[in-house]
Write a protein that binds this DNA or RNA. Sequence first.
DNA 1: CTTAGGG
DNA 2: CCCTAAG
Length: 560
Amino acid sequence: MFTYFSFYFCFGQKRRSVDKTVSADDNNMCAIDLLATVAGHLSFESGSSLMSVDKLIEDHRVKKEVPEEEKPLMPVAFSEENPYQGSLSPCGFSSVINGKLEDDAEGFSYSGATDSCQVSNFSQDIKPVIDGDAVVSVGSTSRTQVPSIGNCASHGLRDDVNLFSRDDDENFSGYVRPRGTKNSPRSVPRIGDRRIRKILASRHWKGSSRHTDTKPWRNYYLQNQRSYPIKKRKYYDHISDSITDDYRLRTKMHRGSRTVSSMKGQGASFVSSNSHVKLRIKSFRVPELFIEIPESATVGSLKRMVMEAVSTLLSDGHRVGLMVQGKKVRDDNKTLHQTGISQDNNHLDSLDFSLEPSSEMPQLLTSHPLEHAYKEMLPVCEAATTLDNVLESDHHDSALFPSDSLGNNNMTEDSKAMVPMALTDLSPSGTLCRKSKRSEQQQQQAAQRRIRRPFSVSEVEALVQAVEKLGTGRWRDVKLRAFEDADHRTYVDLKDKWKTLVHTAKISPQQRRGEPVPQELLNRVLNAHGYWTQHQLQLQQNVNKQQQETPSQTEALLLH
DNA sequence: CTTAGGG
DNA sequence: CCCTAAG
């Protein structure tokens, strides 16, 4: 009868606990890293250059010697009428992706009508009736940001910036490799604000991971939280959000009505005389969505990105939290009445539903807009540390986040402002705080299996694109090329995904599961797989053959 | 750390 | 996704 239950799709519930220790070193690191970051920002900004498309095309055609990086590039002859035209286009991957996004927007059934509908819901702030009574309205898309967990978002971000880059790896995806762990010399600094932001975003990861993180899965947690470049932070009002709440279902309780309107038609007997509480969820906020998209992109592609981002968020497993008068209700067995959710309760004028990170999700902190990051960095850090301590007492909910602090005072009506953003990259303090949490979290949940994150179609697209070009034996390069920003996708993941893709492509459509991958993509998978498999065989044969001849010839052949 | 494959 | 042998 209550929407509340409908929303209850939780997975894990372990709460991340907190490590209180934040050393002075860490604090210093904050400042230093930030400064360094800013410096990097400035220096990068001054050297931008864009190549014209024509120039690129020219370069591509004329270019004979393929950089080492590109070596096993498919033969030119093959490109005449091969299935890899796209990958050989002057703009390479970028252009393709961009093109794809736009095409998709035109009607490519990516996620179906339902999704589109949802998108429009989000953007238009309509209020669909859910589960009889509750009304959910989703708004403020204009401030929506892409989730750090998001994947599609990363594509969009990546792809639109370096639109006019060359086809070869070096210039195509010369991403900054800010993370200390990634020290590949193969990349060159990119120019433009996105890069800057990336630096900003990544610097302190380096710092934090340098201290404690050694295990891959920890890295996952770390990077998982990275948020993607933020563009218009200035719009966001001062943000203050609970430590655990990701999103928030704001509700208003309406008292007095004994019957649920939607049930009237089904017979009064069902409604009985029991007291019913009518919940009206005024808004459903989805924070931590950062979207950056070229102006030339279509509205449809934007919607799609948002949809994908939102889907990712929701599918990643969250649990619903309920707060009554600012106090979190943990006991699921309590009745609403016992909890104080009653039509007779006069002072109960608002509830708060919240989506909390499941056990597998990292703790999310919220922070202030980027513009304030510098000034408030340390204070925020300290504050958060304090919060951490309080968290330990397990009383944080009511103590630190009385209903007022949740922002329902002036936020219930409009869905504006309230765009909590994860205290991730932009504020070094976030790193510190999260790090401190994580350290204990690590002890508690030993090696935990990562969350399952089905590949989106656009991700598959990107993967296929990269593999078409790079082949099936260079997953690290594939990763760097197409998933540099998707920190939750390791090259092993990509390899595995490719494996399953090949398998998927071979089986009948009826046997496939999950989000359907466009046949066109699967065909490309098959083609590329075949091509590279053969390529490998040839290579092997050459080796064998040459081994019987002169070694020098062998080398020559291999190099060629 | 990367690859390649089985689990 | 995970785990691991191997390079």
